[in-house]
């Protein structure tokens, strides 16, 4: 090396980190665009069933969620191990609370078309029994929340 250049005291130049923020920002934007905010913290454990004929839940403002599953470890002492229903951020004790919840949510919507097109998405654990799901459906029918959606994950191969 010394052959080609006159050497003084040579130092290895520091690696420039000026572009590091740019790279991180790029990652940040990627995640901001490709992900969506969690609606709530789950207090029940939900593993979705698998299905193939899925439709996207569009128009978030029309969708309200009901979560059903066994309470997670943290809440087991308080709510037991049987399947429970979670609305917003709390596990409910009486299924009839669904009715008032749906009615309140509907009343809070801006206009009548939105109210009519409200979708109730059921996020139910796949190990749950239909009993509790049926009870919820009956209550949804009673408050005329008739458009429902069973949230599921896409099965990899479509031909079973």
């Amino acid at each position: 090396m010394g052959k080609f250049r006159d050497s003084g005291a040579r130092e290895i130049p520091a690696i420039s980190t000026a572009s590091l923020p740019d790279i991180i920002f790029m990652l940040l934007f990627f995640f901001m665009i490709s992900t969506s905010m969690k609606e709530v913290d789950y207090q029940v454990q939900i593993r979705f069933p698998e299905a193939t004929e899925l439709q996207k839940l569009e128009k978030k403002e029309l969708v309200r969620f009901i979560y059903v599953g066994n309470p997670t470890a943290k809440y087991r002492a308080q709510y037991g191990t049987e399947a429970r229903v979670q609305l917003d951020d709390a596990i409910i004790n009486d299924l009839d609370q669904i009715k008032s919840y749906i009615e309140n949510q509907r009343a809070a919507m801006e206009n009548e078309t939105m109210q009519q097109n409200m979708v109730v998405a059921l996020k139910v654990d796949r190990e749950c029994k239909m009993g509790i799901v049926t009870d919820i459906k009956q209550r949804l029918r009673q408050v005329f929340a008739l458009r429902i959606n069973y949230v599921a994950s896409q099965r990899a191969n479509s031909n079973l």
């Binding site: 923020p21 995640f31 992900t35 899925l54 439709q55 996207k56 459906k137 959606n149």
Partner: peptide, 27 residues
């Protein structure tokens, strides 16, 4: 930027909500 990134990684989920749409009969 790292701080922001970590915040977004923790508060968001990848999954898009998809499901089977059904219509219930009136009660």
């Amino acid at each position: 930027a790292f701080l922001l990134l970590v915040f977004f990684l923790m508060t968001t989920t990848m999954a898009v909500n998809k499901g089977l749409s059904r219509q219930l009969p009136p009660y």
